[in-house]
């Protein structure tokens, strides 16, 4: 017999995310310096014991801004995932459960949406509703919906044909009850995996949008915006680029590992 395999992905993923969650919670009460306070005379300091990650061109403490930046990141990620999962499951579940020509139409629309590079849609949505943290999150949430809808749909189609559903149908259980009580709990795990991937992608997309100047706006600290602001200082003050860049990477990595970990876990169980 093989020894029990440690789920390293889950372990590391959880650890990384826990670390950032704690950082975020702490940042609500304490940051080493005021996040937005400007001290021009103190600008572009290299990392030191006073400023662990150095200071930016306005003399603001980069560590404090990164800590506050995790708030924005978690906020955007949560809103995106929430929108994606709720609407994705509703649309995909409906299409999968009802089937027929309605399913066909919905899936064609979703295909059309997915045939379209997401960033372009995001650019247009942001252009209409204006920039800002919440608008960015909503735009990205709309983008996350079709992918999750597909997953939900295939889950519903698979489960619909199973005996327990037809049994429930035959004894006249209300369709809504079947959907929420019977099918949904059974496609729970792929949805959780999809949600954590959506969270990771949302963080990256927010960074890209902010980099293009279309995402989170000042003075809200955003990791993506910090990266954009740092671009001109790349050669002279590399820490300004590296600190937010590495933070985003770790954060996204945490969510990817979490999703893989959950997937491994459920795969094992099903075996």
């Amino acid at each position: 017999m093989k020894r029990k395999k440690i789920n390293l992905n889950l372990l590391v993923g959880c650890f990384v995310l826990l670390f950032f969650l704690v950082t975020m919670v702490v940042s609500f009460f304490y940051t080493p310096y005021d996040v937005n306070a400007i001290a021009v005379s103190n600008k572009l300091q290299a990392p030191s014991s006073a400023h662990w990650f150095g200071t930016d061109p306005f003399g603001r403490d980069i560590l404090s801004r990164i800590m506050a930046g995790t708030q924005t990141a978690f906020f955007v990620g949560s809103v995106v995932t929430l929108i994606g999962v709720v609407f994705g499951t509703l649309i995909g579940g409906f299409a999968g459960y009802v089937g027929g020509w309605l399913d066909e139409i919905i899936m064609r629309a979703i295909d059309a949406l997915m045939a379209f590079p997401g960033i372009i849609l995001a650019i247009m949505i942001v252009a209409v509703f204006g920039t800002g943290t919440l608008n960015t999150a909503i735009a990205l949430g709309i983008l996350a919906t079709p992918g999750i809808a597909r997953i939900a749909r295939s889950g519903f189609i698979q489960n619909k044909q199973l005996e327990y559903v037809s049994a429930a149908k035959s004894i006249g259980v209300h369709p809504l009850k079947i959907i929420f009580r019977e099918i949904l709990p059974n496609i729970y795990s792929p949805l959780i995996v999809a949600a954590s991937v959506a969270f990771a992608i949302a963080l990256l997309a927010e960074a890209s949008l902010s980099y293009l100047g279309l995402g989170v706006q000042p003075p809200d600290p955003s990791l993506g915006r910090m990266l954009k602001e740092s671009q001109e200082y790349l050669t002279t003050s590399p820490w300004f680029t590296l600190a937010p860049g590495i933070t985003i990477t770790l954060l996204v990595l945490g969510f990817y590992m979490l999703s893989n970990g959950i997937r491994d876990l459920t795969d094992h169980r099903s075996k």
């Binding site: 990771a200 990256l204 960074a207 890209s208 980099y211 993506g224 990266l227 671009q231 790349l234 050669t235 590399p238 680029t241 860049g245 985003i248 990477t249 770790l250 996204v252 990595l253 990817y256 590992m257 893989n260």
Partner: peptide, 21 residues
């Protein structure tokens, strides 16, 4: 997994910094 987690433009900036220059 790390490769998926890095924002593309951050990779680009680092490549410019360490290789391009």
């Amino acid at each position: 997994q790390l490769g998926m987690a890095v924002p593309t433009f951050f990779v680009g900036m680092v490549l410019i910094l360490f290789i391009g220059m």
